[in-house]
Design a protein around this nucleic acid. Sequence first.
RNA 1: GCCGAUGUAGCUCAAUGGCAGAGCAAUCCCUUCGUAAGGGAAAGGUUGGAGGUUCAAGUCCUCUCAUCGGCUCCA
Length: 617
Amino acid sequence: MNPWLIVCQSVERYALRVRKVNTLFLSKPAIIERMKSGEKNIDTIRHSLAHLLAAAVRELYPDAQNAIGPAVENGFYQDFELPKPISDNDLPAIEKKMRELLPQWAEWTKKEVTLAQVKKEFSWNKYKMELAKEFAKEKKTLTFYICGGFVDLCKGGHSTPPSEIDPKSFKLDRVAGAYWRGDEKNKMLTRIYGLAFNTKEELEAYLKQREEAIRRDHKKLGPALDLFTFSELVGAGLPLWTPRGMILRELLDNFVWELRRARGYEKVEIPHITKKDLYERSGHWDKFKDELFRIKTREGHEFAMKPMNCPHHTQIYARRKWSYRELPQRYANTTMVYRDEQTGELAGLSRVRSITQDDAHVFCRQSQAVEEMGKIWDIITEFYRGCGFPELRIRLSFHDPKHPEKYLGTPKVWKSAEAELQKLVKEKGAEATVALGEAAFYGPKVDFIAKDSIGREWQVATIQLDMNMPERFNLSCINEKSEEERIAMLHAAIMGSTERFLSVLIEHFAGAFPLWLSPVQAAVIPVSDKFIAYGAKVRDTLQKEGVRVEMKHADETLGKRIREAEMMKIPYILVVGDKEVTNESVSVRHYKRGQEGEMKLETLAQKVREEIIKKII
RNA sequence: GCCGAUGUAGCUCAAUGGCAGAGCAAUCCCUUCGUAAGGGAAAGGUUGGAGGUUCAAGUCCUCUCAUCGGCUCCA
């Protein structure tokens, strides 16, 4: 297999894994195209630096075997099997060696070789040998690329001589583990990541952006703003929600519910456990048994914590026979699901074991499916607009017509559903990319991708058409001809996972939420405790308007109390003293707009109320 | 789960194998202040947990839990 393919596949898997769609990732053909063209570009520089890294490591650790080393987003990496583990602390020495070698790397030499020649040159390196044998089998030309006396088995893609690379434009970043060829069953290699850009300035800009991302990290900001916490006693991946965090969660959930209610959704509720029978029927027991938290009753019966809600919801639908006139049935349910994720995968709120889903399922005739999807679409766009993501990128995940066997349902059903989805996109005046082969086996999807304030893209919502569940649970309605008709089912989560959505939201706003979402919307600060009575009046007036407001007592200096309110990112800081008492006013300081001066209490209350209702960002 | 790193007071961080410390927060006292840190006192610890080496362990070793960066997986 071509090492580039391995790289590209792992890059794609990475993108999927974090469900973060990074525009900087090049598609597989694009990388290969650029490598082939040999044009001077950043990828060839990065690729060359990977060779240089291999050479430096081989000099410092003569027993090291280098595996593959491609260009990736922001830089490059090289995998090694090392006699002794190394850590980030060893990177400066390797980096120094790279810079030392750099001037000697003035020219690339390409040499076509036979398998015998590879065997001779790389007898010490089982990874290169494995690749070479495979290429030979596939009748590919084997090539050596030599630079600065360092020979590597490589497909090519080097234009700039490394000696021309600015030594300050690259930097070794970190050490990580990676499986040989990305396969869990294979040996774990040591991967050294490097950063590389065209210029020193670009590298510095990237490092700065990364710092910005760290500043916004929800794992730090969440506890700092007192939104959630973790406990070692409770366990990894099980966030605990504080009063302030709960305000946020409820506001978001109510918003979703408001949008749903207007479109005919009804609330349902389900237990968090079930007999295993439900998942045996749905097919999840077999396929996902490793990820189920299982429970054995004292009588020996096996139960499981629910990892999803659809099977439960199907049983609400299945409680009786339905006339086609009563469809669609739309069930909404915000509830937690539990998945036994691998500990190494858990990360803040982005990946947890107790996941809140704002889940909804629509049970409808197949002929109604696209119209219902349109309604969900509207909910999604309105919701995300209200949360500060005015523009969403849309991806239609369709089936791969070359492999009809991989999908449930007839090609005809797929074709017509997909054609209608295309029509829907047009009706909505949206643009969408079509991703063939990205559909679930049970139906096509519409995926929504949001861009955050520092340019990162996140897949946030999806609408899925499910032709599998109705089949497995024999869900139907009685149609006009008095026949049993198989229905369709839609999965309609808006936030998807509340936890994951909050992680994106916290980072998007760097914790400074829009007014309507702020757990505390205003802080009243009396200049001294002579003004506590008036402060209380201000607080009560705003509270009557539904504003979440706190008063900060005067046992600390004014400056300090303002600082505390600022650090908690409270939108309105209202200072009251002599002048304000006389004028029935407040002195307004806004967390984004700064000092706003004196304002009549009445005027402020009205203004704040309006800002909340209109969900101004 | 795998590779690597980290874990000291609520938070941020000190401490050659030799008496576990500072700032902030919390508490109490003084201060009553006009837009991002007023002053003082007292308190806060089984150094994540368990075991081991040593005259002596925060420091070295083993196991374990948690966190971070990756890998693998994800309905």
